[in-house]
Design a protein around this nucleic acid. Structure first.
Lengths: 330, 330
DNA sequence: TTGAGCCGTGCAATCGATTGCCGATGTCCC
DNA sequence: GGGACATCGGCAATCGATTGCACGGCTCAA
């Protein structure tokens, strides 16, 4: 029997006679034969692997997004290869080229920087299907799944105004991610709208890490009276902020209101639990995988943008100020 | 000019004449040529990729271990492909086979379960170099890099005894990971030695997550008087425990001492900051990569085990109970 | 009986890069 | 000048699976 016959039967390309098929299958099982995916990939020009590049696997938001994505891909028989860009566009570019050189059929990426990630991203997109997820580069025309940051921030600011804030600080990341840009713009726009003013020196930008949240707390404490609220553009920042303030004897929500963003697990478990904006991670992942499949099927289709809305989750860290009864964890 | 010549010059296999080399290089640059790693892999039987399988990318300990590993691999020109086993031996086995089928030159793994991970792990190790990292399966004879859990737990128990604990609870994971086994054994052994007793119903096993830490807190609060100390075999557990206790008005270290394990970033930022055992992640990663390289170079070499020691980091969650000011003039 | 059509099977080309081997050319020294 | 030796470049085989094409055998209808 020729290898051609065996190949066809194992891959299901042609049924073959029942008898031959049975022979092939038992032989394959007995020998423990499982193709050679490299040879297969060379011939088929398809690997069954999808790459995902995230800015930082140290951020629980991205790891949980990865988990969702992986779940959806597994349902389609695809493997996920995860790469960490460590918030560095150059490292990100390296990851992209190494993924591109024949290892993956498609790429999901949350680009580190809305400007500095563009070149590598566009070069990659010219070679292999790419879908941007959560973050995106400015002015690219590919497929993307994003959060409606403007709407999200509106919810946050509205909520803070509701509970009595009229001044706020904004803690975010310096790195030029689309999230950072849009959230800053949103805070300024809706702050004006809802009467929550943000002094220029109360915009504190660093990184999306616990540590920067804590440092920002130190900085706020060092530079005069606290604002009514501290809006953090990421839950890690909010946790770092709340914890560090507490270490210095300043407590949310009695002394200052603090809000986060993303709704990572930790946000509901800290004391106080943290008000945040929940991103619809599951839907984001599902849409991203769907877009990737669509583009793989038809590489020439026009790029599309899916914009999803978040949900405000009010917790203890922004409980109404003169309202003694603490809100429990939601 | 033949492809053979170009191939040799680009791969550095032979220098070629200066003139030819220059021609090849400029042509390659102008055309943007970058091999086809699949074809190369087929011929060379080497991909330049290393796989890493961790029990959960939701656990910061593992993500930071991954970051270290990736750093070391990058230094050797290798890519890391990360897989999440989601604490499920079956999913882990699937990941292993998909990595094995020709995608990677070697695998680093922290096996989910010391028993149920064995079959897949051994099958994999028969095909491709494998190094176990942090966790390991019982009775396998491959290479591994582990923490000296017995010594580590001794440091923790000794410290708790020092600050006055005579009774303790132990919060850990049910899943049969080697870490869970060894730490439980350690707590029992050294508890006896140092006079810290652990009631059978004060061993609480669930998962290595924040949520289980919080649930375990509820359970402790529900079942009678608290022990002097709560030893957690993972920092996420300790954070969940401390936070949940605080939500219920029980504060460490005044009401109960709490210790964690791993020393993730979060442990130093919570209020109270958490006493923990720092694992030497950087060295673990370095040793694992080194072992993998050694085994790749010589697949027949005998397996070796590298055991590293941790360091106790004493913080606020176990501050001495009736001793506000450390030794000094009274 | 014959031609058309279908099915199962095998041959051989193909994917793209690497590499063993060989002939050609050049260099050096006796 | 001639032989030993090193260097350079190209042919063609190779990695392992997939697949276009063709061939033999079969059924079925005219």
């Amino acid at each position: 029997m020729s290898t051609a016959t065996a190949s066809r039967i194992l891959s299901g390309a042609r049924a073959g006679s029942p008898e031959t098929a049975a022979r092939v299958r038992t032989a394959a099982r007995d020998l423990g034969y499982t193709g050679n995916s490299i040879a297969r990939a060379l011939r088929r020009r398809t690997t069954g692997n999808v790459g995902m590049v995230v800015p930082s696997i140290g951020n629980p938001f991205f790891t949980s997004l990865v988990e969702e994505v992986e779940h959806h891909l597994a349902g389609m028989g695809l493997n996920l290869f995860l790469c960490d860009a460590r918030n560095d566009p150059e490292l990100e570019a390296e990851r992209l080229t190494s993924l591109t050189r024949g290892n993956v059929d498609g790429i999901l990426i949350s680009p580190v920087d809305s400007e500095r990630s563009r070149a590598a991203l566009e070069a990659t997109a010219a070679t292999v299907p790419v879908v941007q997820l959560d973050r995106f580069v400015r002015g690219s025309d590919g497929d993307r799944v994003i959060l409606d940051d403007d709407h999200a921030i509106r919810l946050v600011v509205e909520h803070l105004a509701d509970v009595g804030a009229t001044t706020a600080a904004f803690v975010t990341s310096t790195a030029g991610s689309s999230s950072a840009h849009l959230r800053l713009a949103g805070v300024q726009r809706w702050g004006l709208q809802y009467g929550v003013s943000i002094a220029p020196d109360h915009v504190l930008d660093g990184e999306f890490t616990l540590l920067w949240g804590a440092r920002a707390a130190d900085r706020l404490l060092a530079t005069g009276p606290l604002p009514d609220a501290v809006i953090c553009s990421d839950d890690l920042l909010a946790v770092g902020m709340v914890m560090r303030l507490a270490q210095q004897g300043v407590h949310a929500p009695t002394d200052v209101l603090v809000s986060g963003f993303d709704d990572i697990d930790l946000a509901s478990l800290t004391v106080p639990s943290i008000t945040t904006l929940r991103q619809p991670r599951e839907r984001m992942a599902a849409e991203a995988v769907r877009l990737l499949a669509a583009r793989t099927a038809d590489p020439s289709r026009a790029g599309s943008t899916v914009s999803l809305q978040g949900v405000l989750v009010a917790r203890a860290s922004t409980a109404r100020r003169h309202d003694a009864a603490p809100a429990g964890p939601s």
